[in-house]
Structure formats: structure tokens, C-alpha cells
Amino acid sequence: MPMARIGLFDVVGPIMVGPSSSHTAGAVRLGLATRRILGKDVTKAQVTLHGSFAATYWGHRTDVALIAGLLGMAMDDERIPHALEIAEEAGLEYTFEHGDLGDVHPNSVRIQAEGSEDKVVIAGASVGGGRINIFEVNGFDVGVDGTYTTLMTMHRDEPGVIAEVTKVLAIHGINIAFLDVSRKTRGSKALLLAETDDLIPDLALQHVMRIPGVIVVRILPRF
């Protein structure tokens, strides 16, 4: 991806709950992205904090921020300070541990989140000023930063699935800005991420869901 121009509200913003844009606001967004990829309320979360996240999480309330995001709060939600109490009321169980995620950004985290039916594992980093990068979803290497409306599919790795997905988007007049496809082994499950310039209507989502071979579809709104 070419280096994006610095935006006015990147430096005059974001509007957020303190105290740290990378350790608090970015952490809220990583939690929120996880919830959106799961597509449901999170009932159980195992969080592994890496590097600087592990070192300063208490002072910068990274734990509270991640839980707030998992509960669906945005980074300027004034309920963030109370996230742990709200999690208890909502029945969200969580654990935090420190761990080495390898050669990744110092502010990285791995979150294993469970809902009523599904489970996802994501790894991502808070890269400064509240900006994030999700670099792993269910073991697939990806690169999502939440600045585009993104369509995500898990599908069988077979000919024509990707073509069908992009065709549906085209029919709905949706332009793809970036397309990222990956798989683990040939013929197994694959993951597609299409970052788009336009909003993706529910109808398009339903069309994608009907494509043979597609197993899971999610829309991640810009955030």
C-alpha cells in the first residue's frame, strides 16, 4: 500500500478517551475490530500482550481499553473507564497474559475471542496515534487498518470463488481499493479481504453469502 497522506484529523485527533493514543485508543480499536470479525457479542477472550503493550498496559489502561473494544465501544466512548465492570455485567470472561509474539510491532496483541457459536483469533498492533494494523486473522497473514469499509470472507480455496465475490461487489457498484487473498494450503480454507471505497449494503452481503464455497462473510465498517 502506498504511504497515505497525513490527514488533518490524524494530527488534530482522534477524539478519544485518554491517557494514550497508542496504548489506550489503539487498544480499544483492536478490541472493536476483533468483535466485528467475530460478528457477535464476545463471551470469552484470551488476551496475550506483547512488548510495550505488556510493559505499560497497567499505566495506560490497555487492559480496560481492549475489553471496552471487545464490548463494542468506540475509542471516544465515555464508558471506557468502566469497561471491566460492564464486562462483568455482560458476562464477558477474559484473561490477560504476557507473551512473545515474535518479530512484530512493540505494541502488539493476540486476542482469541469466542461468541455463542464462533471463535476467532486475531493479532494486531497499535501503530501510533490510535491507528491500528490487524496482521493476522485465524492464522492467515493479512493487513487491515480499518480506514476502509472491508468485506471479509472465509471460503474454500477453489477456482472461481474470488471472481464471484468481486463480481457481486461490482454489480453493487462497489469499488475495491485493496484486495488481499491468502490461504494456508492448496484446496483448504482461504481468506479474502476487500477494502472498498464504498459502503457495502446488506443486500450485497447476502449475495456474497450465497456464493458456493463461501463459509463466513463479515463486513467491517470503517472505524
Binding site: V11, V12, G13, M16, V17, G18, S21, R61
Partner: peptide, 21 residues
Amino acid sequence: QYNAGLGRIVACPTAGACGVV
């Protein structure tokens, strides 16, 4: 002070420096 106490602020350019502007 408000930022340190988990208040809602404008990071400008960062949260740690949000009181300056």
C-alpha cells in the same frame, strides 16, 4: 489532568500532549 484520568480529549498531536494546544 483529564486525559490522565481517562477523560475524553482530542489527541493533538498525541494524547500525552493534548493539553498544549
